[in-house]
Amino acid sequence: MTADDTLGRLNDDDYPAYTMGRAAEMLGTTPAFLRAIGEARLITPLRSEGGHRRYSRYQLRIAARARELVDEGTPIEAACRIIILEDQLEEAQRINAEYRRAADSAKPPAAA
């Protein structure tokens, strides 16, 4: 593996670079919290060859949002559902914007 390959992986938001312990430390939470949001299917960590959970930066951002909601008093299951719904809404808005752009580009030019 070249240095460029290594740097590419470290810059990849989906590369599972963080162990459970390091991820929990970065989020200021516990491994149990990470396991709980995994059990709620909010995130699915990849497994190392030894079977240990590994998290990506993208997954850590999702976990941080879950922790924020839980810290505000939202039950963990509800926090996970909220985040899933937020993600679905964002995707629907993105698709809607694409349809609008396509419809606008298909309209004939306005007569002067």
Rank of each mutant, 00 (worst) to 15 (best):
A66Y: 04
S48E: 11
G51T: 06
E72M: 12
L7T: 05
R94T: 04
A3N: 10
Y55I: 03
G21E: 14
S56F: 08
D87G: 07
D5Y: 07
L89A: 04
E86T: 09
E49H: 09
A32F: 10
R47I: 01
L46K: 14
A106I: 04
E91L: 13
E49T: 11
A32P: 00
P31H: 14
L7W: 04
L34N: 07
M20A: 09
T30Y: 09
E91K: 09
Y55D: 05
R9H: 05
A17S: 10
M20N: 02
T29V: 06
G8Q: 09
G28W: 04
H52I: 00
R57C: 00
E25M: 03
Y18S: 07
K107G: 01
L69D: 12
I95C: 01
N11H: 11
P16Q: 12
Y58M: 14
S48F: 07
A79R: 05
L46P: 00
D104G: 10
I43C: 05
G51D: 06
T19S: 15
E49P: 11
L46S: 13
T2D: 13
L42Q: 01
Y15C: 07
P16M: 08
R57I: 00
A36E: 12
I76N: 02
L85I: 00
Y18A: 12
E68S: 03
L89C: 07
D14Y: 02
T30R: 09
G50A: 14
L46Q: 15
I82D: 06
A97R: 15
E72F: 14
Y99D: 00
I37W: 02
R65S: 08
A111P: 01
S105C: 02
Q93A: 14
P75I: 04
K107C: 06
V70T: 10
R101T: 08
A111T: 13
L46A: 14
E77W: 08
T44Y: 02
R9T: 05
A112F: 06
M20K: 11
L7M: 06
R54E: 14
A111W: 04
D71A: 08
Q88D: 09
A63T: 01
R81H: 11
L10Y: 05
T44E: 12
D5M: 14
R67D: 11
R100T: 11
E91D: 10
R22V: 14
D71R: 14
P45Y: 05
D87K: 10
I37K: 00
R47M: 06
T74P: 01
R9C: 12
N96S: 15
T29M: 04
Q88T: 04
D14T: 02
Y15N: 07
A92C: 05
G73T: 04
A106Q: 13
A112H: 06
S48D: 15
A97N: 13
D71V: 02
I84R: 09
D4G: 03
T74H: 02
G8R: 13
A63K: 05
L60W: 08
D104F: 08
Y18F: 15
E91R: 15
A79G: 07
E90K: 06
R81I: 10
Q88A: 12
A66T: 03
G21M: 13
L27Q: 03
L85Y: 01
I82Q: 01
S56A: 13
T6H: 10
A78T: 12
A79K: 10
V70P: 10
H52P: 01
A23R: 12
A79Q: 07
A66D: 02
D104T: 13
E39M: 08
I43A: 06
L69W: 10
I82W: 02
E25V: 02
E98S: 11
D5S: 09
Y18D: 09
K107W: 05
N11I: 00
